[in-house]
């Protein structure tokens, strides 16, 4: 199986707070991996290390056979292969929906404007936001913003989509529309790494679930293995707390 991202012995500290300790894991092509764990366990930090929004203190990030941390020169090019979706959406406030989806394509990937618009339109259709191309971020609901953010990331045609709690900032009635889009992306065979607190969703879409606690990966496996028959005490405690 093709490994897209392989993480070896990754560590990260903020000051003397060791947030990630010797983390090892990988994401295969076409795989959907959900990262779960209690608040403060380092899930976001791990995800942000993967696209270098945080600089790891040690370890390796192997992308298509190359250690990215050794070749820090072209971080920008590396990042175009990863699509990031943030909890707070982070749409560019000065641009409308379409402009949000074509800016990176034109300025970073150097695509022509026509091509960029075509690609953006395709993905805006995927997320059901093609009618809103002229809207500005402040004119959209949270669920709509997040769907545009997903389309913006997809428009770069990344190899992996990274999601950091994409539904945590949403009102409950909008969670469904975003999860539906993500489910569809998973079904289409996209490679996805998702940090989430939505256990039911994780169970349904994941090929693999990774449970983190206090900066280490405690266990990982299929949804059945991790959620139904967890091996470790810490996983059991976490699952009890989230289901009750």
């Amino acid at each position: 199986m093709d490994t897209v991202i392989d993480i070896k012995h990754l560590s990260k500290s903020f000051g003397n707070n060791e947030v990630l300790k010797d983390v090892n894991f990988h994401v295969n092509k076409g795989e959907v991996v959900c990262l779960i764990g209690s608040s403060g366990s380092g899930k976001s930090t791990l995800l942000r290390c993967v696209n270098l929004l945080e600089t790891p203190n040690g370890g390796e990030i192997i992308y298509k056979g190359k250690d990215i941390l050794q070749e820090m020169k072209n971080i920008e090019a590396y990042r175009t292969h990863l699509g990031m979706v943030f909890q707070q959406f982070n749409l560019f406030n000065n641009l409308n929906v379409l402009e949000n989806c074509i800016l990176g394509q034109i300025k970073v990937l150097k695509r022509s404007k026509e091509e960029a618009i075509k690609t953006a339109t395709t993905y805006l259709q995927t997320v059901g936001m093609e009618a809103y191309v002229n809207a500005r971020p402040n004119q959209l609901s949270g669920g709509q913003k997040q769907r545009v953010a997903i389309a913006r990331a997809l428009s770069m045609n990344p190899d992996v989509m990274l999601f950091d709690e994409p539904t945590s900032a949403l009102d409950p009635e909008m969670v469904g529309e975003v999860l539906k889009v993500m489910r569809q992306l998973a079904d289409e065979g996209n490679t996805m790494l998702i940090v989430t607190h939505e256990m039911q969703f994780a169970r349904e879409v994941s090929d693999r679930i990774v449970f983190m606690d206090k900066g280490v990966i405690v266990e990982q496996g299929t949804p059945e293995q991790v959620l139904t028959a967890p091996q470790h005490e810490r996983t059991k405690v976490f699952l009890q707390r989230t289901t009750s």
């Binding site: 699509g83 990031m84 959406f89 982070n90 000065n94 990331a153």
Partner: peptide
């Protein structure tokens, strides 16, 4: 978040400033 979103699509600091931050 505006900077991070721009970085995440691969923009340089300069591009981020010119196309995202400074217009705002």
């Amino acid at each position: 978040g505006q900077y991070e979103a721009a970085q995440a699509v691969g923009m340089t600091h300069f591009q981020t400033m010119v196309y995202v931050v400074l217009p705002q």
